[in-house]
Amino acid sequence: MTQQEALQEYLLRMADSGMILAQRLSELVGKAPALEEELASSNVALDLIGQARNWYEYAAELIDDGRDADKLVFLRDAHDYRNLLMVEQPNDDYAVTMARQFFFDVWHYFTLKALSNSKDERIATIAAKAVKEATYHLRRSSEWVKRMGDGTEESHRRIQDAFNLLWRFTGELITPDDIDHAMFEAGIGPDPQQLKQDWFGMVREVAAQATLAVGEEDAWMYMGGKTGEHTEHLGHILAVMQFLPRAYPDATTW
């Protein structure tokens, strides 16, 4: 794999992870547990879509085969998606929704922070903007984790169950593969060791305040999203998300 191919893959991971999580959050529109949470979820989704568009536009320029951001989103199949498995997991109850958001936000925040110092100027530019938004996402999700963990017996049980349920997808966030290493060595991507340390540091700090137990670092982990091997959920997400543009290709007005 050439350096440019690795960069394209890396950009698609950033773009797809934001896009799929945004699609999951959009499912809450009309049925979030409270109006404030509905506004918050859709605002977070909006930020993620805006960031994803920036990543896709850069990826599309490098791929240079005539596809634009919309075509990358709407006309690729599940095995071409490079998102983290964490973000495609179902919303389930609100504790699961928020635990997923929290694990992702911690990863996203530290990744973007590192990327804003990337040697690739375009990446640094996109990340410097996105990290400001991700800071607010992380503030919100960590507060929810604390509130539920240190709340009632029922809320504690649910968020602890959610941590246990989703723990098997956390390994993928912080386990580097060849592409992550290549990006780090080129001065483009974050230092995988540092990212792992920062991620655990913050997750443990918030979990401690929330009186929650976190899983083992060497627990068995599901991986594969970054190389296109997904859980059964992604196909269903894409079916909903891609239906309209696939049914009416190249429509300019819907």
Binding site: E36, E37, L39, A40, N43, L46, E133, Y136, R140, E143
Partner: peptide, 9 residues
């Protein structure tokens, strides 16, 4: 504060 996010992002 009621919510970290209001009528717009």
């Amino acid at each position: 504060r009621l919510s970290e996010f209001g009528s717009t992002a």
